[in-house]
Design a protein around this nucleic acid. Structure first.
Lengths: 255, 255
DNA sequence: CGCAGCATTGACGCCTGTCAATTTGAGTGG
DNA sequence: CCACTCAAATTGACAGGCGTCAATGCTGCG
């Protein structure tokens, strides 16, 4: 659905600038807590994005951090010699731009994969707000810590799992991410080409395709009639388990 | 050289608790700046370590961050199913324990590879000090950002480079790290077994051994008479360049 | 309708993992 | 000082997983 909020809202100071697109059934909502913590304590530029929009352009001077409030993003890294990679995916509640703090320049592109909305925060203002609000500082640190932890988990996966397990884990993590944000997890829409998935997982697009076919044969996933980018996961626990097996044996779940 | 400072010094409030083991020739010393920023603003437990000592035990409750003031550390991650990996190395000025902030428990072990010294900081006190000292908060954020950036660089390397290039890059990064801290970079002492290097780089110990042999044949490194763990690097720039080549061709530098 | 991008599938080859034998080196005790 | 022991490292042979190349199918769009 196209967003009607084209002109960015400046200087939002109400305690809740934008209603969350999804509200979990229970009262526990860490994303909303963080967003309401931000709102009212510093100037927030609410920014709508469309698929393909780039937020943190690699090489550009660092100045803002972004919190995803809706939609999903891919973060792509690029080496001097042209090697590049989709290094991470971000969903609602995730932060973009941490990589720019150290060097003063963004190191990655963050590209929207869908219509969405981010909250742009000036880093200097955020730091000031953190000084006044320990809770906010703790939240920012928690997010950076999470980013570190996820990167390490990813590295472990890339270095110790065979191709098919990596794909399974990738799908399982994506689905679990959505589930943790109150969205349905049994069906996910990949907004990446096979080549991008391969770059993220350290394999070729052909291997991604073959791995997916193998997972389909093993009844761990299914393609829907909505296209080859929509994947139905009948049993997330089984997929997760397979995604942690170092032997790519998919003998389980006979037809 | 063995450390004589066995009993930890508690509550150091002088503006420089321990003299840096190495002082760079020029006045520019970011590590020393950070350390003097810390000293005097919160309680610091100076802690001596020996090879094998573990600082952040994976699974233990999080409470402290550690700044390396001397020596070198390896950080090892371990999955539930037993897969494990050396995920990072740390030298003077690097921080340990960031991974514990988000979950409240350390996710990795940090093991000393040598005699060394760390400054242990209670996280809660650090946060308070950060509130009062924007410079300190900026420094902490810079370090976390660096950790994120390094993890992404590592992932790019693991996913896009052949085995020999990964080993070359590993050695080049290590040497460059030492050089940036004022130590000599032309000779490095690996304090890891081939198996540990392999786990860090996503390959087997045999491949590490073969890659090193290949680099020796290509005159990019040399073993010294001090053993096969000490590596002499005649031309760091050449090694770095080779560590970024996606073709493992080592035809350069004929004898 | 034809084109272009994306995805699938097969054939083939190479890089690297696996297995095994051997050598080197460090630590220990006689 | 030397023999002994064991972990670490090297090296070779072999095989398998995955990359490479190529052909084909599918889908959306001008």
């Amino acid at each position: 659905m196209p967003s009607s909020n084209l002109s960015p809202l400046h200087l939002v100071h109400s305690n809740r600038a934008a209603p969350p697109p999804f509200s979990p059934g229970r009262g526990f909502d860490p994303v909303g807590d963080m967003l309401s913590l931000l709102a009212g304590r510093l100037a927030i530029r609410v920014q709508s994005v469309h698929a393909g929009d780039t937020l943190c352009c690699a090489g550009r001077p660092f100045g803002h951090l972004y919190v995803v409030n809706a939609g999903c993003f891919k973060t792509t890294s690029c080496a001097a010699d042209g090697r590049h990679q989709v290094v991470a995916l971000q969903f609602r509640g995730d932060w973009l731009g941490f990589d720019g703090i150290a060097s003063g320049r963004y190191a990655c592109d963050a590209v929207a994969m869908d219509v969405g909305e981010v909250w742009a925060l000036r880093y200097e203002e955020l730091m000031q707000a953190c000084s006044c609000t320990p809770e906010l500082m703790a939240g920012v640190h928690r997010e950076m810590s999470l980013a570190i932890q996820r990167a390490r988990d990813a590295m472990l996966s890339r270095c110790t799992l065979p191709a098919t397990s990596r794909v399974a884990e990738f799908l399982a993590v994506w689905a679990t991410s959505l589930a943790g944000r109150g969205q349905r997890a049994e069906q996910i829409t990949l907004r990446l080409t096979r080549a991008e998935i391969g770059s993220h997982l350290g394999m070729t697009l052909e291997s991604v395709s073959r791995s997916l076919a193998s997972l389909v044969r093993g009844r761990l996933i299914r393609f829907t009639e909505q296209g080859r980018r929509v994947i139905y996961i009948p049993d997330l626990a089984a997929l997760t388990a397979f995604g942690q097996s170092v032997t790519g044996d998919i003998s389980s779940r006979a037809p």
